[in-house]
């Protein structure tokens, strides 16, 4: 067996028999311990992929294997133990009247004993920096705090994989940055795979791998760095590259050697520094 945790094998999906195909013959693998970003224009099939990954939808053609199990009616409950999902709008995801109840919900559903539940609630709220809000009402929290609680609720069930479906889209830049920090720190503490579905170009830079969707097909499967070198192609499918990659391109045209497409400001400044010190 390969060490892929998620595998899509020739998956096609549509929402009804008379509807157009949303996914057309999609195949890819997600390896253990990876952070994968899925990007694409609106309607390219990104969110459908997320919903297929934990059995909220089933494909008409092809198969999806998660953690060694082919997803079907019998396996979905096992699959969902290992795949957690955070949606764009945390308000759609709250069930409890307090933060504590809300995080407890997934654990209760799985019949986890009370002592372990209490420990897991504490641990997961601590991981997202929300311990002091344990008795607050979720609806009175700020957008960023709500999203952190939603992540804690998913962490509590100890999944192997967390899918973030535009989970930072409704937040302001500060909230967005905080959530990314939280995710990074959680990933450093435990083995966790991530799939982030996003339009945020700077967020893609954090991922190990990017899957680019276009009109229901996989358009590219590559690294962020290789992707950001393809400005023209990306623009054609409604996407773009980050500011720092654009600036790097202009430097190259002016004859300044930039050895690798930068993912962030520091990388570009470093390249300029090397050039400057050689002059």
């Amino acid at each position: 067996m390969s060490n892929s945790f998620v595998e899509f094998r020739n998956v096609s999906f549509r929402y009804g028999d008379d509807q157009p195909w949303v996914l057309k013959n999609v195949s890819f693998q997600i390896q253990s311990d990876k952070w994968v970003a899925i990007i694409g224009h609106n309607g390219s099939g990104k969110s459908t992929i997320a919903k297929l990954m934990n059995g909220l939808l089933f494909p008409q053609e092809g198969e999806i294997i998660v953690n060694g199990l082919i997803i079907n009616e019998e396996t979905i409950w096992d699959v969902r133990k290992s795949v957690g999902m955070v949606f764009q709008n945390p308000d759609n995801q709250f069930v409890g009247t307090t933060v504590k109840d809300d995080v407890a919900f997934g654990l209760e559903n799985r019949g986890i004993p009370r002592e372990i539940m209490i420990r897991r609630i504490d641990e997961s709220l601590k991981a997202v920096g929300m311990s002091e809000y344990i008795n607050h009402e979720p609806h009175r929290l700020s957008g960023g705090q709500k999203q952190r609680v939603a992540i804690a609720s998913v962490l509590a069930i100890s999944p192997n994989l967390i899918i973030l479906d535009e989970a930072t889209a409704m937040l302001d830049p500060k909230g967005r940055f905080d959530i990314l920090q939280v995710i990074n720190s959680v990933r450093n503490q435990e083995r966790l795979m991530l799939v982030t579905i996003t339009h945020d170009l700077n967020e893609i830079g954090y991922a190990d791998k990017v899957i680019v969707m276009n009109n229901g097909s996989v358009w590219a499967e590559t690294t962020p760095r290789a992707l950001f070198a393809k400005e023209k192609d990306l623009k054609q499918i409604g996407l773009d590259i980050p500011f720092v990659a654009k600036l790097a391109k202009e430097f190259i045209e002016l004859g300044i050697p930039i050895n690798k497409t930068p993912l962030n400001h520091d990388e570009l400044l470093e390249e300029l520094w090397i050039y400057h010190s050689k002059m």
Partner: peptide, 10 residues
Amino acid sequence: TAGLDPRGQQ
């Protein structure tokens, strides 16, 4: 423009 893809936003 919240929730739109980069070209949609622009």
